[in-house]
């Protein structure tokens, strides 16, 4: 079983500390939501977990420091979905999702049947199989978000790090997106997703990391982290809570 851990993780960008003293343990089988206001350091945290940022402290993948691992090996074990739906060439959807298999391809080898099966699985999971031959740059924002999620799923890595995978999705596809991430976790993967939607996080995440100004404010099950006190302190908002069994949270008003 895979696990990710950080020890005193710190990240400096442009001479400013954007993340500091962050220690946590993330075991397999969990859907972890990373929450916090804009500029809290969520994306930097995720990038550091993916080994994409120089950092202080340590990131441990299955107990071994990520910084000393070959890039190609990390690529097979950690899939990372960046923020912002970047896509520079008008590729066909199938071709784009197929890029997720790059970490598994040996030099000069062709794409194998197992790769093709993984691509197809990923497209079915995110409900984009019918778009396979379309040009990805001509899709709607929501379709594109699902296609890019499929690309990350196609890696079939034990760890999936997703930076705001639900932006520009309609409610049904947002819920479907959360279900996909949760199913990934149920199947034994570790899924860490940066999110902004408190209601969806409250409902679906097994664990929440709440960040504010580069520090880890609270960590634990959604009910213990997204408390009225923490929401007031970090977001300066109030919220309505449904009965405990319903896992229902609706953000209400700005405080102050």
């Amino acid at each position: 079983m895979v696990s990710l851990a950080t020890e005193n993780l710190g990240v400096r960008l442009g001479g400013r500390e954007v993340l500091g003293g962050l220690s946590t343990q993330l075991p397999a089988g969990l859907l972890v939501g990373v929450l916090g206001p804009n500029g809290a350091g969520k994306s930097s945290f995720l990038k550091a977990l993916a080994g994409l940022l120089p950092h202080a402290g340590r990131v441990l993948l299955d107990g071994a420091p990520l910084a000393h691992m070959p890039r190609a090996e990390v690529a097979r074990r950690i899939a990372y979905l960046p923020q912002g739906q970047t896509l520079h060439w008008p590729l066909a959807v199938e071709r784009l999702v197929g890029l997720g298999r790059l970490p598994h391809l040996a030099p000069l080898s062709r794409i194998a049947d197992s790769d093709r099966a993984a691509i197809e699985r990923a497209m079915r999971r995110t409900d984009v199989a019918h778009l396979a031959q379309r040009t990805a740059t001509e899709l709607s924002g929501g379709e594109r978000a699902r296609v890019l999620l499929a690309r990350a799923l196609a890696v079939e890595a034990p760890v999936l790090l997703a930076d705001e995978p639900l932006t520009s999705l309609d409610p049904a596809h947002q819920i479907e997106g959360m279900e996909i991430l949760r199913d990934e976790a149920r199947a034994g993967a570790l899924v860490v997703a940066v999110m902004h939607d408190l209601a969806l996080a409250y409902r679906y995440c097994d664990r929440i990391l709440l960040l504010d100004r580069g520090r880890l404010v609270a960590e634990g099950p959604a009910g213990d982290v997204l408390t009225p006190g923490n929401l007031a302190e970090v977001y300066a908002i109030s919220a309505f809570y449904g009965p405990p069994a319903e896992r229902l949270l609706v953000p209400l008003d700005r405080l102050r």
Binding site: P82, G84, L87, L102, P103, R151
Partner: peptide, 18 residues
């Protein structure tokens, strides 16, 4: 292949082993 990976941006390419 590295060029292909870059079509998803530099972070995504790096995360795919480039």
């Amino acid at each position: 292949r590295a060029l292909d990976a870059l079509s998803l941006g530099e972070d995504a390419a790096a995360s795919m082993g480039v």
